[in-house]
Design a protein around this nucleic acid. Structure first.
Length: 479
RNA sequence: GGCGAAGUGGCCGAGUGGUUAGGCAGAGGUCUGCAAAACCUUGUACAGCGGUUCGAAUCCGCUCUUCGCCUCCA
């Protein structure tokens, strides 16, 4: 069985094989850290987290790089616009680096909550200025870039394959829809900045052969990817909105500099929408993760994301989240029921589920189908557990091993004890469990003496306190 | 204007040239003191119009609609 990945470059699913046997080099565009992360970030990084997890489970050693963009870039590629990090720094009355650090930490807090594994290396753009300058020097030397007034631009005309990723190869045609009146020192309107001279007010700036300035946005990914992963890498991921211009620029500057293919597999995840409209910070419709986590278990958000395919748009709504909450709880309940069942004699073959799960994941990381397999397995387990035979210990262990591998390791939506991750009870949990046992004993006694008024009162009032009791065949459970 | 993606049952959301996706919600049932859960049964959906085909929701064409990118952006 082999893994197939949809390659944005060829627009087809291709069989995946790394350049070097057993080792996968992977780079994913990280966030620009000038605000708290929103649901869109969650979709992107959860999606690629699953990619990394599945590659590792498939036996590859994955070297996973995800950068932090902590250089403020202009909101406009002309010489207008503002540096977002600097703007936020002025707003918060502090300096840009503090803003970058603060929101970097915030980003990881949120990602940790979502169960997103940390990358092997998380390089910051500001820590790789010399590498970026070296790349610009190389491009100038090879005739692909030129300097004007302390600014350096990449000459798109000099690189014939520019725009091949996005399909935007006709630069003339593209100009027709662009705003008029952009006076520019660039030779061609499509040329993009590699280095920009800083004006007086600019706070983040570095010395370079051309000016005191700062690197162009596209440059950092090329420089850092090549530094840590080599000139040709296996997988480069990012959001779809970055196909153009960001990724096309990356390809141009990298391949111009090395003469080698930059990326073998381009992967692009689709957007989160609200009422069909893209979620974005600048659109002011983004849903902050920290806000969502106040009312929703992060695992539910992860599950919600993985219930759609990474290349599909995902529409956010309260009802959709609610449906995911119920659905995930069902999976957790089954897992717990399985663990707590008294050993029986029933046997159950789950090899077909394992096979279908693997096939789904190997088919361009089809997590919705993989999750559907888990639901079908859940139904089968519950049905078996409802029989008098129950399930034998050996069968139980086989299923649990699969759930652990598929649900916990691959998708990261289940954990070992079948509980949600968000509950930070730990120390108080024992006490609560003991109190609950007292209450449940009382209720059992009440029910024995047919005092249903009392037993229902205990149940109802616990429910009001947020604890639900269920009388199952194997005893009372609460959650 | 250019480039790209998509329109699936009440909602979310996969997939595919002929066989049940799955989840949530709804209806009926089993179980239970009741409830909840679980399980069983239940929906015959694929924007519209043409075409190819023995057969298309799935391929092709056209039309309509939506979305993303062309400025920072996951």
């Amino acid at each position: 069985m082999s893994l197939f990945i949809y390659n944005s470059l060829s627009r087809t699913k291709e069989k995946f094989e790394p350049l070097h046997p057993d080792i996968v080099s992977m780079y994913v565009c990280g966030p620009t850290v000038y605000g708290h992360s929103h649901l869109g970030h969650a979709k992107s990084y959860v999606s690629f987290d699953v990619v990394v997890r599945w590659l590792r489970l498939s036996g590859y050693r994955v070297k996973y790089i995800q950068n932090i963009t902590d250089v403020g870039h202009l909101t406009d590629d002309a010489d207008e616009g503002e540096d977002k990090i600097m703007k936020q720094a002025q707003l918060e009355k502090t300096d840009p680096m503090e803003i970058a650090q603060y929101y970097t930490r915030s980003f990881y807090e949120d990602m940790d909550q979502l169960g997103v594994l940390r990358p092997n290396i998380a390089p910051a753009a500001t820590a790789h200025i010399p590498e970026q300058i070296a790349l610009v020097e190389k491009l100038i030397k090879c005739g692909y870039a030129y300097e004007v007034n302390g600014n350096v631009y990449f000459s798109v005309k000099s690189f014939g394959r520019y725009g091949k990723l996005s399909g935007r190869t006709d630069q003339e045609a593209m100009q027709s829809g662009i705003r008029v009146g952009v006076r520019s020192e660039k030779r061609e309107p499509a040329d993009f900045a590699l280095w920009k001279k800083a004006d007086q007010r600019h706070l983040m700036k570095w010395n370079s052969p051309w000016s005191v300035g700062y690197p162009g946005w596209h440059l950092e990914c090329s420089a850092m990817s090549m530094k840590y992963l080599g000139e040709t890498i296996d997988i480069h991921g990012g959001g779809m909105e970055n196909k153009f211009p960001h990724h096309d620029c990356e390809i141009a500057q990298s391949e111009a500099a090395t003469g080698k293919p930059y990326v073998r597999f381009w992967m692009h995840n689709n957007m989160v929408t609200i009422n069909g409209i893209k979620m974005g910070k600048s659109l002011k419709n983004s849903v902050n993760l920290k806000d969502i986590f106040r009312t929703t278990d992060p695992m539910v958000i992860r599950f919600f994301i993985l219930q759609s395919h990474y290349r599909s748009q995902l529409d956010y709504s309260e009802t959709a989240i609610k449906a995911s909450t119920t659905g995930l709880a069902k999976l957790h309940d089954t897992q717990r029921r399985l663990r707590e069942q008294k050993p029986g004699t029933g046997e159950f073959d789950c090899s077909s589920f394992i096979l279908r799960f693997t096939e789904a994941m190997d088919d361009d990381f089809n997590t919705p189908v993989a999750i559907a397999v888990l639901f079908e397995l859940s139904k089968a387990i519950n049905a078996a557990l409802d029989c008098n035979d129950g399930l034998s210990d050996t069968t139980r262990k086989v299923i649990e091993a699969f759930l652990d591998r598929a649900g916990r390791e691959a998708l990261g939506i289940l954990n070992q004890d079948g509980q949600s991750s968000n509950r930070e009870l730990e120390g108080s949990e024992n006490k609560l469990a003991r109190v609950m046992n007292i209450l449940l004993d009382l209720r059992i006694e009440a029910r024995k003496s047919k005092d249903f008024a009392l037993s229902d009162k205990i149940r109802d009032q616990l429910l009001e306190a947020g604890i639900e009791i269920k009388d199952t065949k194997d005893g009372v459970i609460w959650s």
